[in-house]
C-alpha cells in the first residue's frame, strides 16, 4: 500500500485529537476525509507531515516509516501538504512563495520546470508573480498555496479544505485542478467540509468524528449511505 496509517493517536496538550485512526491510500487514488469541525482532519494531516508528533501508531509511506521523521524529510520523500487557510507568506512575492515551495529541490533546472508547470496550471499566478502574496484575492491565494505544495514535486499531495471561503466558480476550478493533479500521477488526500464535492471526486472516503474513523468505504457508496446523507450532505 502506498500510504498506510495504523492506529494513529495524537494529542494537543492533554486533548486527544486522534484516536486510533487507520487508513490507506492506493497509489494514484483520491482519498477524502470528511467530518465536522474539530473531528481531527487537520490534526491527521499535520501528523502525516511530521508537524504534529503522534503519541502512538505508525505511518508508512512509499515503503518507509515516517511517523518520527522531520517535516523536511517527509517533504523530500514526496509527501507535501497544502494547509487549511492557505497560509501563504503574505509579505513575500508570489514568485518567492513558489521558490520556497521547492526548498527541498536542489537543481535549478527542476525548479524552473515546476515553475513552468505551476504557471500553466494557474496562469493568473504568472501575471501576478511580482505581487506580494498578501495582496492576492482569496481564490488566488488558494491557487498559490496549491501551486506552492506542487513545487516540491509530491508523489502524494494532501489538500486541507481547498474550497473554504471560495466562490463556487473558483471551487469548480480548484476541483478541475485536483483531477488534473491525479491524472498526472499524484495521489491526493482531500480534506473537505463540503462533503458532497469531496465524495464526488474521490475514490475512497473516511468519515471522522471526534478523532475516530466512524465510517469508510468507496466514495460512491458513502454518497448513498443514509447516515452520511443526513449528517454531512444535508439531504
Amino acid at each position: 500500500m502506498f500510504l498506510k496509517v495504523d492506529n494513529l493517536t495524537a494529542h494537543y496538550g492533554r486533548v486527544k485529537a486522534l484516536d486510533n485512526v487507520s487508513m490507506e491510500a492506493p497509489k494514484g487514488s483520491i482519498v477524502s476525509l470528511i467530518g465536522a469541525n474539530g473531528a481531527g482532519k487537520s490534526s491527521f494531516m499535520m501528523c502525516l507531515s511530521g508537524v504534529l508528533r503522534p503519541t502512538s501508531g505508525t505511518i508508512e509511506f512509499d515503503g518507509q516509516r515516517i511517523e518520527s521523521a522531520w517535516p523536511e524529510q517527509i517533504v523530500s520523500l514526496g509527501l507535501s501538504q497544502c494547509p487549511e487557510g492557505r497560509r501563504v507568506w503574505p509579505k513575500m512575492t508570489v514568485l518567492e512563495n513558489l521558490e520556497m515551495g521547492a526548498f527541498s529541490v536542489r537543481e535549478p533546472r527542476v525548479v524552473g520546470e515546476r515553475l513552468e508547470r505551476a504557471f500553466s496550471l494557474f496562469p493568473i499566478l504568472k501575471e501576478r508573480q511580482w505581487q506580494l502574496a498578501g495582496s492576492l484575492s482569496g481564490g488566488e491565494q488558494q491557487m498559490l498555496a496549491i501551486a506552492r505544495a506542487l513545487m516540491a514535486g509530491p508523489k502524494l499531495l494532501m489538500l486541507d479544505e481547498p474550497s473554504l471561503g471560495l466562490a463556487p466558480i473558483i471551487v469548480e476550478k480548484v476541483m478541475e485542478v485536483i483531477k488534473d493533479i491525479r491524472a498526472a500521477g499524484t495521489t491526493v488526500i482531500l480534506v473537505e467540509q463540503n462533503a458532497f464535492m469531496a465524495l464526488s471526486i474521490a475514490d475512497h472516503a473516511y468519515v471522522l468524528e471526534t478523532g475516530k474513523v466512524v465510517l469508510s468505504g468507496k466514495a460512491s457508496e458513502l454518497l448513498q449511505n443514509d447516515d452520511v446523507r443526513k449528517s454531512y450532505l444535508g439531504i
Binding site: S49, G50, V51, W70, P71, E72, V75, S76, S80, Q81, P83, R87, V88, W89, P90, K91, M92, E96, E99, M100, G101, F103, S104, R148, A149, A152
Partner: peptide
C-alpha cells in the same frame, strides 16, 4: 534569507514547504 523570512511569517507553512527550521 528567504527561508528566514518565510519562517518569520509562518513557521508551520515553512515546515510544510520542506524548510529545516
Amino acid at each position: 534569507g528567504k527561508a528566514m523570512r518565510a519562517v518569520a511569517q509562518d513557521r508551520t507553512a515553512a515546515q510544510l514547504a520542506g524548510i529545516n527550521i
